[in-house]
Design a protein around this nucleic acid. Structure first.
Length: 308
DNA sequence: AAAAACATCAACCGCATCAAT
DNA sequence: GATTGATGCGGTTGATGTTTT
């Protein structure tokens, strides 16, 4: 037996909401709340609308504190970061952006941000620069220690530069699923660039290494895949190599890697959170972004190598 | 100036999940 | 455990506005 429709479609109004309808819905909810029953609400409110339509209208447009208009650079970064980490879970992403709705973010991503990202124009985060400055002052590595950082993040999708002091307990992460992604806006900067490959290398340790040379310059190739267990997923980072003529040995490939720092951003790096790290060239990455469902496909099994 | 192409975004649709029965 | 209904979510559509030809 099929499911009964949520409303009689022949007798409900569809299409854009009129100001009068908006007013009715607003006034009703202000007076009575939703009553926990959207299906019954339109009749009570005197609206010839489907309950689902009322809910959508309220959530996406009428409820208080909805933010309309331009997205800030910070919001751009958060959306990009989360999208690359968790995919198109717009409700989770929206939960990190007060006043924004999932529908808004989805539309914004599909129409603008995706293109912006592909064109490589995601501005820097001042917080990252502050952090870099602080690290230079302190002469400290970017993360307190690889083991501490990894342990804290274990089993969850946390991206980028997370301040371990502020992280929830390991128990918290052990109980975390991908549908309740913890995200700490002020501590996470996941759109980042490898300003110091050495530092990133230290972060994840190494196991087995070899080296080769190219045009006289030494390239170390480190396998870093021994770490791991879903701590990261599709971390996005930016590549400085293209801006550096001395880094010709990278052959315009972008490394998939766990994390790093943001400078001039013009490419994408990815690390799958598993035992694998993969290189993609720009076209491949653009393709991955352009096909929304393909974000997860990055996770295919490949050996992990880390060049610096 | 008109037509075509493109961009935007509100709204809809169908599916998954969950709670109540 | 099965069924039913409400809700939430993400993908998609289509009307409208804007830009380009």
């Amino acid at each position: 037996m099929g499911r009964a429709p949520c409303c009689d479609k022949a007798n409900v109004k569809r299409g854009p909401w009129s100001p009068e309808e908006d007013l009715k819905l607003k006034e009703y909810i202000h007076k009575h709340g939703t009553g926990g029953n959207w299906i019954a609400l339109p009749q009570k409110a005197g609206l010839k609308r489907c309950g689902k339509s009322c809910r959508l209208r309220w959530l996406n447009y009428l409820r208080p504190n909805i933010k309309h208009g331009e997205f800030s650079e910070e919001e751009d970064r958060i959306i990009c970061s989360l999208y690359v980490n968790i995919g198109s879970r717009w409700s989770i992403i929206a939960a990190q952006l007060p006043g924004r709705t999932d529908n808004d973010i989805k539309n914004y991503w599909n129409t603008k941000l995706k293109k912006k990202l592909i064109s490589g124009f995601i501005p820097n985060s001042s917080s990252i620069q502050q952090r870099k400055h602080h690290q230079q002052q302190q002469q400290q590595p970017p993360f307190p220690s690889s083991s501490m950082y990894m342990d804290q993040c274990y089993g969850s999708y946390v991206t980028g530069l997370v301040d371990p002091i502020s992280l929830p307990s390991t128990e918290y992460y052990a109980n975390t699923t991908t549908t309740s992604v913890p995200f700490y806006q002020h501590q996470v900067d996941s759109i980042v660039s490898p300003s110091s490959m050495q530092q990133n290398y230290h972060m994840f340790g190494s196991e087995g290494s070899c080296s080769s040379s190219d045009n006289g310059s030494s390239i170390k190739q480190e396998e870093i895949g021994y770490h791991h267990q879903g701590s990261y997923n599709n971390i996005i980072a930016f590549d400085e190599f293209n801006n550096n003529n001395n880094d010709h040995h990278h052959n315009n490939k972008f490394l998939l890697m766990p994390s790093s720092f943001n400078d001039n951003s013009n490419s994408i790096v990815n690390y799958d959170g598993g035992d694998n790290i993969t290189e993609y060239d720009l076209e491949e990455i653009k393709q991955l972004i352009s096909v929304s469902s393909s974000v997860d496909e990055i996770k295919e099994e490949k050996p992990i190598y880390y060049y610096y």
